[in-house]
């Protein structure tokens, strides 16, 4: 049963991009593609041949593979209620975060491998933003670790309890942060607009301009998986492990669904930031998680009121 979180995440990840697209389409009054369209796309890509730029080297070919693998392994850490993930150990979120960094690293150099100005730009933006969002995640995890006195995803989520107004506030802020970190990590609005056709303005999508076939299929699937990563964390964060299993599964899927629909809403009604504003905006995430940390210090009675 230890891999329950992993399996559920995989399942829900397949539908995520579709649901986001459908939400956005519905909100803007269009019919939109079906929920399964991204899956069909991926399947079609899997069958397709590839075209490689003569400028590229082995790096370009292996980057999507490593990227995909890094996300799948990161998903292996996903706990589920009282069940651990396949992999679970103390301070595993450090490994988790650095593993995702490996994926980003190879994608960045993979993009630079094509020698294209567009992809250089995308790679550069990705490098800058993912660098800035790192502290926010670590402070948040530090706060939760401090709150629960546990340091692995599994034990952290199992031991988290909310009982006072302050702790509810912290929970809200933490969820907000998780969602926003997910937006940055996935290069979505307001940081990036993946659905535009303008290669000059994008971050993640412009990095994969030259990818095709199997590689592109992996990249598409990875998008869903990355959402599932954060959706799963939020779900775990919310439901207590004391609930019966079936309720948990239902709630897990429900929270994931809500998360993705929320993303759809956010994307429909918000324009993306001016690029110059992004770093500052990401930095405020760190500031907010700092405030969370301070309030956790109050909860654990290290900072005495009065």
């Amino acid at each position: 049963m230890n891999g329950l979180g992993f399996l559920l995440s995989i399942v829900s990840s397949l539908l995520f991009p579709g649901i986001i697209a459908v939400t956005k389409a519905k909100l803007s009054g269009r019919k939109g593609p079906g929920i399964f369209q991204p899956l069909f796309d991926a399947a079609r890509l899997f069958r397709k041949g590839s075209i490689y730029s003569v400028t590229t080297s082995i790096i370009f070919q292996i980057a999507p593979v490593i990227y995909f693998a890094s996300i799948v392994v990161a998903l292996l850490f996903m706990p589920f209620g009282q069940y651990k993930g396949f992999l679970s150990f103390e301070v595993d979120f450090v490994f988790f975060s650095y593993l995702l960094a490996v994926g980003k690293f190879v994608m960045i150099i993979g993009a630079m491998d094509t020698g294209s100005g567009f992809e250089g730009m995308g790679a550069n933006r990705e490098a800058l933003y993912s660098m800035l969002v790192e502290p926010a995640f670590f402070i948040l995890m530090g706060s939760l670790a401090l709150l629960t006195n546990h340091t692995s995803f599994y034990s952290l989520f199992v031991h988290i309890h909310f009982d006072s107004v302050l702790s509810y506030l912290i929970a809200l802020l933490a969820i907000y942060l998780f969602v926003q970190i997910a937006m940055v990590e996935n290069s979505r609005i307001p940081i990036d607009d993946p659905k535009t056709h303008l290669e000059l303005t994008m971050i993640h999508e412009v990095m994969v301009l030259d990818n095709s076939g199997f590689d592109m299929c992996l990249i598409h699937l990875a998008t869903g998986l990355k959402f599932a990563l954060y959706g799963g964390l939020i779900a775990n964060f919310i439901f207590p492990d004391t609930w019966p299993l079936y309720t948990q599964i239902a709630v897990f899927l429900m929270v994931n669904l809500l998360f993705v629909i929320a993303v759809g809403f956010l994307e429909a009604f918000r324009a993306r930031n001016k690029l110059e504003k992004n770093p500052k905006w990401i930095l405020t995430l760190s500031s907010i998680s700092m405030v969370v940390f301070l309030s956790v210090l109050v909860i654990v009675h290290k900072y005495f009121l009065e």
Partner: peptide
């Protein structure tokens, strides 16, 4: 213009 800023709903409404 909304397509340039990524405001999906604005873009769709304009087209509508």
């Amino acid at each position: 213009l909304c397509a340039g800023t990524g405001l999906t709903v604005g873009n769709a409404t304009g087209s509508k």
